[in-house]
Amino acid sequence: NQASVVANQLIPINTALTLVMMRSEVVTPVGIPAEDIPRLVGMQVNRAVPLGTTLMPDMVKGYA
C-alpha cells in the first residue's frame, strides 16, 4: 500500500510546509504520495490542516 502525507501537527492556513510538519502513513482515502514530501517543502497550505489529517492535492497551493 502506498503511504500518503499526513499532518504531524496543526498546520495553520497559509503556512509554508517544513519536513517536521509532515509524516508518511498508509491511510484511506489516499492523499498526496509520501514520495512528494521533498517537493512539498516550502509550499503553502490554503486551509488549516488539523493534526493527523491526510494532505490532499487541493490543500496545497501550486501542488495540483
Score class of each variant (00 low, 15 high):
28 T>Q: 11
54 T>H: 08
40 L>F: 04
10 L>N: 04
40 L>Y: 04
27 V>A: 05
35 E>P: 14
62 G>T: 12
52 G>Y: 08
57 P>R: 10
60 V>H: 01
4 S>K: 03
3 A>P: 09
50 P>W: 15
39 R>C: 02
64 A>V: 15
40 L>A: 03
17 L>V: 10
53 T>S: 07
4 S>A: 13
10 L>C: 02
29 P>T: 13
64 A>D: 15
62 G>Q: 14
10 L>K: 12
6 V>W: 03
57 P>W: 11
36 D>W: 10
28 T>S: 09
31 G>M: 03
44 Q>D: 09
19 L>M: 05
34 A>Q: 07
39 R>V: 05
51 L>M: 12
32 I>R: 00
48 A>G: 14
26 V>K: 15
60 V>W: 02
25 E>L: 10
8 N>Y: 10
33 P>T: 12
2 Q>P: 15
11 I>Q: 01
45 V>M: 14
6 V>L: 07
43 M>A: 05
25 E>D: 13
55 L>W: 01
23 R>C: 02
35 E>H: 12
47 R>P: 03
30 V>G: 03
51 L>C: 02
34 A>D: 08
3 A>G: 12
52 G>W: 10
31 G>R: 06
7 A>E: 00
1 N>D: 04
52 G>H: 11
23 R>Q: 09
53 T>G: 09
22 M>V: 15
12 P>N: 06
15 T>Q: 15
16 A>V: 07
35 E>T: 15
29 P>D: 12
44 Q>Y: 12
16 A>Y: 12
12 P>A: 08
28 T>E: 12
8 N>F: 11
20 V>Y: 14
26 V>Q: 13
63 Y>P: 15
62 G>H: 04
32 I>N: 01
3 A>W: 12
47 R>S: 07
37 I>G: 09
46 N>H: 11
2 Q>Y: 13
58 D>M: 07
20 V>D: 10
36 D>C: 03
40 L>M: 15
36 D>G: 11
31 G>D: 00
19 L>H: 12
46 N>I: 13
6 V>Q: 14
1 N>E: 13
24 S>R: 12
25 E>I: 15
7 A>L: 13
39 R>N: 14
14 N>Y: 12
9 Q>G: 09
42 G>H: 04
33 P>S: 12
41 V>T: 06
48 A>H: 10
63 Y>G: 09
41 V>G: 09
40 L>P: 00
14 N>L: 08
44 Q>G: 12
58 D>H: 11
28 T>P: 03
19 L>T: 07
42 G>C: 02
53 T>L: 09
43 M>D: 14
41 V>E: 04
47 R>Y: 15
54 T>Q: 07
28 T>Y: 08
60 V>P: 01
54 T>W: 03
13 I>C: 02
30 V>W: 08
37 I>W: 06
28 T>R: 03
50 P>Y: 15
60 V>K: 01
53 T>P: 00
46 N>T: 12
29 P>K: 08
40 L>H: 01
21 M>L: 06
34 A>G: 11
58 D>Q: 06
37 I>M: 14
58 D>Y: 07
63 Y>I: 15
28 T>W: 08
45 V>A: 03
53 T>V: 10
37 I>C: 02
21 M>C: 02
30 V>E: 06
9 Q>Y: 09
15 T>E: 15
61 K>M: 09
8 N>L: 10
8 N>T: 14
47 R>I: 13
31 G>V: 03
47 R>N: 05
3 A>F: 11
38 P>L: 10
54 T>L: 10
64 A>T: 14
49 V>H: 02
14 N>V: 09
8 N>M: 09
40 L>N: 01
58 D>L: 07
5 V>R: 01
47 R>T: 12
56 M>H: 14
60 V>S: 01
38 P>K: 10
26 V>S: 11
61 K>G: 14
6 V>Y: 03
32 I>Q: 01
38 P>V: 11
62 G>K: 09
8 N>V: 15
37 I>Y: 09
51 L>W: 12
7 A>W: 01
6 V>T: 11
55 L>K: 00
57 P>S: 03
47 R>E: 05
50 P>L: 14
47 R>A: 12
53 T>W: 14
26 V>C: 03
7 A>T: 04
47 R>G: 09
3 A>N: 08
3 A>Y: 06
9 Q>M: 14
61 K>C: 02
37 I>L: 12
35 E>L: 06
8 N>H: 11
56 M>K: 09
23 R>L: 07
15 T>Y: 09
1 N>H: 12
7 A>R: 00
33 P>E: 05
57 P>N: 05
